[in-house]
Amino acid sequence: MQQFIDAAPGIRLWTEQRGARDAAPLLLIMGARASGVAWPEPLVDALAAHHRVIRYDHRDTGRSTWPFEERPYRIPDLADDAIAVLDHLGIDRAHVVGMSLGGMLAQLLLADHPDRLLSATLISTSALSSTPYTRPDGSTVPVAELPGIAPEVLELWARPAGEHGPAAEAARQVEHWRVLAGDRLPFDTGFFRALEQRVIEHTGHHRTSTAHGRANHDGMLRTDRLARNAVPALVICAPADPVFPPPHPQHLAQCVRGASLVEIPGMGHALPPAVLDPLATAILRHTGAATG
């Protein structure tokens, strides 16, 4: 079922629900510049076999309001949008699964709204914490010295998008996914081409927004609150992630009190077919234990 909700004055968000209405709710939060339909259909279906799955378009993506050019907002406002989705749908508490920026938003929910979460799964993201990383040998690494984004990703992000038409834009996005996916699994060009075509059809145009990269990121650290976390949390380690490579996931698991860590072999900063089954298994094992 699809519907629009009013998240804030002048902000409407597209939402979709799938699965049994009486199942435990699970909210999917995608990454920066990504529509909710960027969650692969097989993964959504696998989760919806056990949960009432909700996904939605962030502001400036998909069918939701694109307001940034006239009314800039802060990244934490996107976390407020997630709460607004739950409120509008009458959901008191939900499992939350966030990827990349969505994983950061999920951390904000862990810190600021723990009473609204049944569990959190954090995928391909980094800690909103200033706590140093502790290596297995006991030595520590300041957060500023953790590995940065791979040069090939930065080079791709630095290229101007331009105006090339829908087909060329889809091809550009497929190349983007190729770089993000890492080099440990064969790249499925057809899968990501179909994904991008679905996003363009869903959105109604092929333009992409840079709003999330330009939005104010200040005030996002939640060091102390994450260290006191009491919500069941799972960190997904993507060993081939060129954006937040190891030991970012290990560091995140250290920063979020009580978090467990599961590695998905070969996974990068993308969701290709090869990782969907093990990822769904890890998420469902986690949510099943948390639901009890």
Rank of each mutant, 00 (worst) to 15 (best):
D22Q: 11
P151G: 05
Y133I: 12
V231T: 04
G213I: 09
D137Y: 02
L109C: 03
A282Q: 07
L122G: 07
D241A: 03
V235Y: 00
L78W: 02
L118G: 04
F68E: 13
G190W: 08
W157S: 13
A290I: 06
D92W: 00
E152H: 01
H88V: 05
A238N: 02
A120N: 06
A120W: 01
N229R: 14
L279V: 10
H95K: 06
H95I: 07
P76L: 00
F4G: 00
A79C: 10
L271W: 13
L13N: 07
A82Q: 09
A289W: 11
P160E: 04
D77R: 13
A290E: 08
V143L: 00
R135T: 11
D92C: 08
A194L: 03
A270H: 02
Q2C: 10
P72E: 02
L271Q: 12
R63K: 13
L261K: 14
A106G: 02
L26V: 15
T291W: 09
Q173V: 05
D183C: 14
L109Q: 08
R18M: 15
T125L: 06
R184S: 14
P40T: 13
D87K: 04
R12Q: 15
V85I: 05
L234Y: 10
A48Y: 09
R33Y: 12
R116Q: 02
R285A: 07
P151A: 04
G31V: 03
P9C: 11
R12T: 10
A253K: 08
L28P: 04
S209R: 07
D218V: 09
H251R: 15
Q107C: 02
L101G: 03
L146G: 07
A111S: 03
L89P: 00
A230I: 00
I5T: 02
D188T: 09
P160K: 00
L185E: 11
D112Y: 03
S35A: 06
Q173Y: 08
T291H: 09
D77Y: 12
V141F: 02
V37L: 14
